[in-house]
Amino acid sequence: MKHIDTRGLSCPEPAVKARRAASELSTGDHLEILVDTGAARDNVLRTVNSLGFEAEATEYEGGFRLIVTKK
């Protein structure tokens, strides 16, 4: 599973990094993205969903852990 840690970065950086990393996924691949604010979670989810990826967010270490999957 690929992994990017965007904690502490201001918007739109988490979404930009997520978009870049997600676009490199192959079918069946997973991408783990760590964010530290609700705004970053919402932005990243919206970005990857708009690209057609499935994504799920769970609370993690005071922030959020997003798992993005290319179906």
């Binding site: 989810l45 609370e59 993690y60 270490e61």
Partner: peptide, 18 residues
């Protein structure tokens, strides 16, 4: 390992995020 020890809690529906 640390990730697996974390309680995993699904975030609820957020109207203003829609």
């Amino acid at each position: 390992d640390t990730k697996q020890q974390q309680p995993s809690k699904q975030t609820p529906f957020r109207f203003f995020a829609t």
